[in-house]
């Protein structure tokens, strides 16, 4: 059984984002890179399934992106994926979801993947489109935002979150694509021998053209910081001084610290 996992490399979200010269996206200088968190859930779930199935399953990790993403593909290998495919596309960071999906579809079509796992969205573009676009274009069933997964001979049972803390349980059949949500699993830390092994592994490298890159459906620009609360106050300094300042503000701006001490 062949399983595909689609992953993306994103910057650490704690980093400082500055617009690039064109103002279309962020400048990559000074950012640290890692696997998109939702995609790590996808890798973990695929590898767990492979381990349960024993020798009959093989997991391929696929990543579209510039040269830097090789590191994230090696991370997927160290977590237990068998093969890694890099669609080497320096322009990937600013491509729209349609284009990214077109390349994944171009690679996956005809390769007989029974299951495709991916994250429910990327942390940087947050479009939550690529997984579904791939599924629709491959003509496979798709369940999104799953928080539980069960496989029994091609029958899949998943839990999917809806609003208000509720989840629903859905059943579908392979071939299928599943997008993974936080809460599905805790991705493993690779062992040192697996890390060493992944460093020596050979990656398959493909060009965007060879996998059928299509023109975009949308453009993106005017990348800028989120507006702050204009009325908000920012304080920093040493903890004790800050505590006194905060206490004073809470006393004047809120009614929660009633007279005669703390409630």
């Amino acid at each position: 059984m062949n399983i595909l996992v689609c992953i993306k490399q994103v910057p650490d979200m704690e980093g400082r984002f500055e617009p690039n010269e064109a103002g279309s996206w962020f400048d990559e200088v000074g950012l640290a890179w890692r696997m998109n968190e939702y995609d790590a859930f996808a890798v973990e779930e695929a590898v767990r399934l492979k381990e349960r199935l024993g020798g009959e399953a093989r997991v391929t990790a696929l990543c579209v992106g510039p040269a830097r993403v090789v590191e994230t593909l090696r991370k997927a290998l160290s977590m237990g994926c068998d093969d890694a495919v890099h669609i080497d596309d320096p322009e990937a960071p600013e491509r729209d979801p349609w284009q990214i999906a077109s390349m994944i579809v171009g690679f996956a079509a005809g390769r007989g993947f029974e299951l495709v796992f991916t994250g429910m969205q990327s942390e940087d573009r947050s479009s939550a489109q690529v997984g579904l676009l791939v599924a629709e274009r491959l003509g496979v069933t798709c369940a999104t935002g799953i928080t539980a997964f069960e496989w029994r001979d091609g029958a899949i049972t998943v839990e999917r979150e809806i609003e208000g803390g509720r989840s629903c349980t859905l059943r579908l059949k392979a071939p299928a694509l599943l997008t993974c949500q936080q809460g599905l699993n805790s991705p493993r830390y690779p062992t040192l021998p697996n890390i060493m092994k992944s460093k020596r592994a050979k990656l398959t490298v493909l060009t965007p053209e060879s996998v059928g890159l299509e023109p975009p459906k949308a453009s993106s620009g005017n990348f800028r910081p989120h507006e702050r609360n204009a009325a908000g106050v920012i304080l920093d300094g040493d903890a004790v001084t800050l505590a006194a300042q905060v206490l004073e503000i809470l006393e004047t701006r809120t009614a929660v610290l009633g007279k005669g001490g703390v409630r």
């Binding site: 910057p11 979200m13 984002f17 279309s24 996206w25 962020f26 729209d96 979801p97 349609w98 942390e123 940087d124 573009r125 947050s126 479009s127 939550a128 489109q129 459906k217 949308a218 453009s219 993106s220 620009g221 005017n222 990348f223 800028r224 910081p225 989120h226």
Partner: peptide, 29 residues
């Protein structure tokens, strides 16, 4: 085209959040 999670309008384009909500950008179909 699809524009996901529109939070505002910007000169004929649609404003969406990026980078876990720290940043914004304008998407045009």
């Amino acid at each position: 085209a699809q524009v996901s999670g529109v939070v505002g309008l910007d000169d004929g384009g649609y404003v969406v959040e990026s980078c876990n909500g720290k940043m914004r950008r304008t998407v045009r179909p």
